[in-house]
Nucleic acid binder design. Structure first.
Lengths: 115, 115
DNA sequence: TGTCGTACTACGCCTGTCGGAGTAAATATA
DNA sequence: TATATTTACTCCGACAGGCGTAGTACGACA
């Protein structure tokens, strides 16, 4: 089966992550599991990709972090919350997606057609 | 208006170029004009991107080049022709596109919906 | 006792894209 | 006739996101 390559997904990890933060704050491990289950195992984000996206998007003001210190065993967990700028960025990226999709589909030969 | 960013198009330039070689050989300048007109000016590929894609794809065996030496004034023009491996690569990339589109659309909130 | 799941961090490489500059001949415009 | 634009590339180096590898540390389960 075809796999999703890193070059193809590049530029979309941001919106995938932000989508999962639209309603509630969340954290790395949970988001990675949600991406996996929502995509029906078709896309499994790499940990390094995910956490570096958090760092970058926080730097850009699209998300904010806060730490839950009170987990069992004194463990901590870093949550992320989407900011208004992040919502705006998400909206813009969705528009860009629509446009990009239209453009790319002009260069795709549909299934069943001879190539 | 939303613009197509380089991160988003990354990974699709190959299929855009190969699509334009499916029926006939062509060359850089013509392909760049065709991309522009077919996309209705929504996507204008950068020259450096285009020519480095040629180099890379030739190295990978997806296209072959030949030179027309007989242009007016002794000018030459480098044409590219898609190979069977290139057709196979194009087909695979189209499949990947279908899959990727399905995945990404699970993380997109449609127009008119509150975000 | 050891492996699996949870929840990360750090380091550095790879690759496609792009900005900028340069070359040079043909054609269009003033 | 002089200048600008179009055609048709080439070279170099920078950038940024994704990813491989490794490491840390705790709890649960068998």
């Amino acid at each position: 089966m075809a796999e999703i390559s890193s070059d193809v997904i590049r530029g979309y990890n941001d919106i995938i992550i932000l989508y999962l933060l639209l309603n509630d704050p969340s954290y790395g491990y949970e988001i990675s599991k949600q991406i996996r289950s929502l995509s029906e195992d078709k896309y499994i984000i790499k940990e390094t990709t995910l956490y570096s996206a958090f760092t970058r998007m926080e730097k850009n003001g699209f998300i904010e972090s806060f730490v839950d210190q009170d987990l069992a065993g004194g463990k901590k967990r870093t949550y992320y919350r989407i900011t208004p700028a992040g919502r705006e960025y998400y909206r813009a990226k969705c528009e860009e997606w629509t446009l990009t999709k239209e453009v790319i589909e002009k260069f795709i030969v549909g299934e069943g057609r001879a190539v």
